[in-house]
Simulated scan of single mutants.
Amino acid sequence: MTTKTKTPTQGKGARPSGGRRAASDAPQTRLNVNINSQTAAALKDYADQQGVSITEAVRRLVGVGDFIAKAQDEGKQVLLRQDGETERVVFSY
């Protein structure tokens, strides 16, 4: 069995530098959203664990969500593997 690992920045149109333009080159869009306290806490926890700003945490998590949504749209499955066990994860929006 062959396992192929692909990160969200790999694939069609990916940039060799990890998929990001320099901050000064990237067009900016200001985003103002309302989120509940549970979502705010999860976002802060992620940012703290990764040592990044809330803005960077939002960028990363939106990128992951986009990657998963596109994969599912293509008929792909999201699988979690641990200790020889495989679990299929279904994201419904």
Results as ranks from 00 to 15, higher is better:
R30D: 03
S53F: 01
G13Q: 07
K70F: 10
M1D: 13
L61W: 00
D45K: 12
D73K: 12
F67C: 06
E56C: 14
G51R: 05
G84H: 07
K4S: 12
A22H: 08
L80P: 02
T86H: 03
V62Y: 09
K12I: 12
P16K: 03
G65S: 11
K6F: 13
R30M: 11
A71P: 00
A47H: 07
A23D: 15
E56L: 14
Q49Y: 02
G19D: 07
K6Q: 14
S53V: 05
A71Y: 02
K76P: 00
D73W: 06
V62W: 05
V62L: 08
A14K: 04
E87A: 13
K70H: 14
T86K: 12
Q10F: 01
Q49W: 01
S53C: 03
R59T: 11
Y93L: 14
R88I: 04
S37R: 03
N32V: 14
G65N: 05
G19P: 00
V58W: 09
A42T: 03
S17E: 09
F67R: 04
S37Y: 00
G18F: 00
R88V: 08
T39G: 07
A22D: 04
N36W: 09
K6S: 12
G11A: 13
V89K: 10
V90P: 00
R88F: 01
D83W: 01
V52Y: 01
E56M: 14
E74Y: 05
A14D: 06
G63E: 00
Q77M: 08
V58T: 10
E74N: 14
S24L: 04
I68R: 06
T7A: 12
A41Y: 09
R20V: 06
R59D: 12
K4F: 11
E87T: 13
A57G: 03
A69D: 13
G13A: 09
A40H: 15
G84M: 12
F67W: 10
Q77K: 10
E87W: 02
V58A: 15
V64I: 13
A23Q: 13
A41M: 15
K6T: 15
V78R: 02
P8H: 05
E56P: 10
V90R: 07
Q82T: 04
G63C: 03
A14C: 10
Q10R: 06
E87D: 10
D83F: 05
E87S: 06
P16S: 07
T9E: 09
A41P: 06
Q10E: 14
S24N: 11
I54L: 14
G11P: 01
N36C: 11
A14R: 02
A57H: 00
A40M: 13
I68K: 05
G84Y: 08
T86E: 14
Q50F: 09
D83K: 05
E74M: 06
R20G: 02
S92K: 15
D45F: 04
Y93A: 11
K70E: 09
R21H: 15
Q49S: 12
A26S: 07
D45S: 11
